[in-house]
Simulated assay, not measured.
Amino acid sequence: MRLLASVVVVLSGLGSPALAEDCASLVKSMCGDAAGQEGSGTVDNTGRRVLTVEVKPPAYAIGDRFPVEERSLLMNPKRYGLPGTDGTWRYYAMDGVVYRVDNTSAKVIEVIRDSRTWRLR
């Protein structure tokens, strides 16, 4: 199943898209003219450019065996706003997703994907 998310970005204070050379957007593909000649996405009737992004599902789902031999343990979960471990499970990070994994079976117990974890690789 493909998931799509729409992100609306206002490119200038006047509500109209900026020219590419004047664009300060971190997402350079959002820079372009009002006709949509440069950049990706579409311009809506308010002058905002709408970008459609494909969101990839996590590599492992609840119940899958996680490759604990190949990944590093997340050592300080409280740094990311996650509760500490109780000894029966541990956290592993991969591609911006944190997996809570059972110690004995290496099965995924929980998949955590939010603003706290997106930087983790």
Rank of each mutant, 00 (worst) to 15 (best):
G36V: 00
V53R: 06
D33E: 01
R79Y: 05
L73N: 08
M1V: 10
N103D: 12
Y92P: 10
V55N: 00
V10S: 08
E21C: 01
Q37I: 15
G15S: 09
R121Q: 12
P83Y: 04
R2P: 04
M1T: 07
A5K: 14
W118F: 14
I62A: 04
R116G: 13
I112T: 07
M30D: 11
E21M: 11
G96Y: 00
Y80F: 05
A61I: 00
T88L: 12
D102R: 04
P17T: 06
Y92N: 03
G13A: 10
S105F: 00
I112Q: 11
F66I: 02
S25L: 06
A93M: 14
D22S: 11
T46P: 00
V101G: 00
G36K: 02
D86E: 09
A24P: 02
E70M: 14
M94K: 02
Y91N: 03
G41L: 12
R100F: 09
N103M: 05
Y91P: 06
S72F: 10
S6K: 11
T52Q: 12
V111F: 04
L74D: 03
L14N: 15
R90C: 07
I109N: 07
A35K: 15
S16T: 10
M94E: 03
G13D: 07
R49I: 05
I62R: 08
E110L: 15
R48N: 08
P77R: 13
N76T: 13
G39V: 11
S12M: 02
L26D: 09
P67C: 10
S40W: 09
W89S: 15
P57L: 02
Y92D: 08
T85F: 00
Y80E: 14
N76D: 12
Q37F: 06
V97F: 14
D44V: 05
N103T: 14
T88I: 15
G84L: 09
E69W: 08
D114Q: 13
D114I: 10
M30R: 10
R2E: 07
C31P: 00
S115A: 06
T117K: 09
V101P: 11
S72N: 07
V50A: 01
F66Y: 12
D95M: 00
Y91D: 02
R119T: 03
N45A: 10
